[in-house]
Simulated scan of single mutants.
Amino acid sequence: MNIYGLQNSAFSLFARVVPLRLRIPSRGCGFFGDLFMTLNGLRFAELCGADASVVWGQNSLYFDANSGQNAYRYFFEQAEFDIRTPRSRLSLDMKYRPTADTFRRYDGLSVRASLRRALAKYCVVRKEIADAVETFVRDEFSNLTLGVHIRMTDAATGAENRKVAAIDLYKYHADKWINRNPDGRVFLATDDERIVEEFGNRYRERLVVRKSLRSTDGTSLHGHYDIGVAGSGLIKGQDVLTEALILSRCNYLVRSHSRVTCYTLCVNPALEFTDLSLEIDGVDRTPWLRGNGFIER
């Protein structure tokens, strides 16, 4: 058993005796890396009968001192969760650092559908962000819209053993979709302004792009592995969350591996997609996304 397994066992045993509140911090990684690990922590709190709070403090890439001391609350409505059956309002507050393991599913649901349930319980998007999504979809989408997510910058450097699909491969799949849906539009979400220009030259009036902060020279947008693009962490977080939600409203998705679109595909478990990671290296880094609903008992 590794150190995290020992940690979980210790917390589970302790929670049977002492009312616990698990304090789940940011791990200082990308927005959805943090979010998926946070969900793992909240799920663990459910399983061991502890309350929980989410505290994305100054180590979060999205922290902005002018916007409050908990970056989680910049994006989601609630950060305190009374999970257990109330036994006493007095509880022992303990820091819990969740891992990046695959989410432990709910009975009868796939992992993807389980994450959809957890997101609905614990990650209710703030109204101003939800309203921005609705306005954009209403004003910019057609009856049929293809979503394309292209992560460049840090991914293009090979960080975390990533391989970036050639832009022509994205275009190939977008062209195939347009041939089947000649009146459709293409919504592009990317961290690289140069990709916006390239897609604009090809798809012109079909292309739908949201105005957001992007890299212009290959520097990491969020500062995962380098100094990052200058700009507010609050704005960076709002941008990536908003665009991931907009992608969930598309009719089909073309992606390579990224936690951004893992979130998109959990918000909308019925959304079908092409994963270019399979085409470029034959590796499926998220096989759990293949199950979209109930599982056989």
Rank of each mutant, 00 (worst) to 15 (best):
residue 81 F to S: 09
residue 48 C to I: 15
residue 60 S to L: 02
residue 153 T to S: 11
residue 53 S to C: 08
residue 52 A to V: 08
residue 119 L to D: 07
residue 71 A to R: 04
residue 62 Y to V: 03
residue 128 E to W: 10
residue 61 L to W: 03
residue 64 D to Y: 02
residue 121 K to G: 03
residue 85 T to W: 07
residue 113 A to Y: 05
residue 116 R to W: 09
residue 97 R to F: 11
residue 136 F to G: 05
residue 80 E to Y: 07
residue 151 R to T: 05
residue 70 N to F: 09
residue 146 L to Q: 05
residue 152 M to G: 10
residue 127 K to P: 07
residue 82 D to F: 12
residue 45 A to C: 04
residue 82 D to H: 14
residue 54 V to Q: 04
residue 67 S to P: 02
residue 78 Q to L: 01
residue 130 A to E: 14
residue 112 R to G: 01
residue 102 T to K: 14
residue 128 E to V: 04
residue 57 G to V: 01
residue 113 A to P: 03
residue 156 A to W: 03
residue 102 T to N: 12
residue 140 E to S: 14
residue 66 N to P: 01
residue 99 T to G: 09
residue 86 P to F: 15
residue 69 Q to S: 14
residue 135 T to F: 05
residue 100 A to W: 10
residue 74 Y to K: 07
residue 94 M to S: 04
residue 101 D to E: 13
residue 151 R to G: 06
residue 80 E to A: 09
residue 104 R to P: 06
residue 69 Q to N: 13
residue 81 F to E: 08
residue 89 R to P: 11
residue 143 N to M: 09
residue 46 E to F: 11
residue 71 A to N: 00
residue 56 W to V: 06
residue 122 Y to W: 12
residue 120 A to Q: 12
residue 150 I to K: 04
residue 89 R to Y: 13
residue 115 L to C: 08
residue 89 R to M: 09
residue 61 L to A: 06
residue 57 G to P: 00
residue 146 L to Y: 04
residue 105 R to G: 12
residue 101 D to V: 15
residue 91 S to A: 15
residue 153 T to Y: 03
residue 45 A to T: 03
residue 114 S to T: 03
residue 135 T to M: 03
residue 48 C to W: 03
residue 140 E to N: 14
residue 108 G to K: 13
residue 75 F to Y: 10
residue 71 A to H: 06
residue 74 Y to D: 05
residue 114 S to W: 01
residue 110 S to C: 11
residue 85 T to N: 14
residue 115 L to G: 09
residue 90 L to T: 11
residue 88 S to D: 08
residue 121 K to W: 09
residue 78 Q to C: 11
residue 79 A to R: 01
residue 156 A to D: 12
